[in-house]
Design a protein around this nucleic acid. Structure first.
Lengths: 138, 138
DNA sequence: CTATATATGACTTAATTTGTCAAGTATTAA
DNA sequence: TTAATACTTGACAAATTAAGTCATATATAG
């Protein structure tokens, strides 16, 4: 429970790798694989998701690969997590989805903690950027 | 990823139910089931875990059931979560288990976010108590 | 004694995660 | 143009974890 999935870890690792790279020439899956030893086919899948979510750009053909699409300062960690995993929903009774829960009063007595957790996690993930990680700044 | 498991939700629901109860006479699995509709056999398992972790006391035999073992103010939500699920480890490279990770330098560039998440989650769970929930206080 | 409860551990079933593969399409260096 | 390189897609399989059930044993109030 509440474990960071490999999808997330790998996804962030790949992004950090791209962030460390020159920013001009594309890095191929092979390149990233050689640095991080993330299973190649799996990594590829994740990169596709990152591309579809506008975080990286792909360059096809020989010498192709992937490049960050934005300034690392503009890339929230939350964006990366969402890209590879979908929205971070610790519970299904946030404000937006309130109708899906709380039919029983007692259940709602437990809700505040989960909501607080949900908020605090989303806060951290949306305050930190890729830049924070590649620059070793707080 | 990062979803609250039913074990946690059920476990906390059961504890809240016990917290709402008179605190003297035991509540049977059946009683809790009737309030919360948590699958009976599953609930039982969870209660056994809560007992083994010193959060509830069991009274066997007719009119038996479960009672909170401590003052709700002394019961951290984290205790409950740990009881039903084991330690909350978002990642496996916290200070204590540092040796199990970070063999690759780059991987550690991603570590700070996960550590921060880990800490923030554990903080919330250990600051909130059962009493906070049953009393609707912040 | 008996009805009611918990205790325990094994066992299913379902869902999710993680990872692989194959066949195809696109691009470019040479 | 061609060979090499790389991305695209969707299906699939293995492994792990979560969720839920059951049978049997043990304890106790009345």
């Amino acid at each position: 429970m509440l474990k960071i999935s490999t999808r997330c870890r790998y996804g962030l690792l790949a992004m950090v790798e791209l962030g460390q790279h020159d920013g001009q020439t594309p890095m191929s899956v092979q390149d990233i694989y050689q640095k991080q030893r993330i299973p190649k086919f799996y990594l590829q899948q994740l990169l596709v998701k990152l591309r579809r979510n506008g975080l990286v750009e792909s360059v096809r053909g020989s010498k192709g690969g992937f490049v960050l699409k934005k300034d690392p300062k503009q890339i929230k960690i939350l964006d990366i997590v969402k890209a590879v995993e979908g929205p971070v929903q610790l519970i299904f009774c946030t404000k937006k989805a309130k109708d899906r829960c709380c039919r029983r009063i007692k259940e709602c007595l437990t809700r505040p903690v989960w909501v607080e957790l949900h908020e605090v996690v989303n806060k951290v993930l949306s305050e930190r950027t890729l830049h924070d990680l590649t620059q070793n700044l707080p």
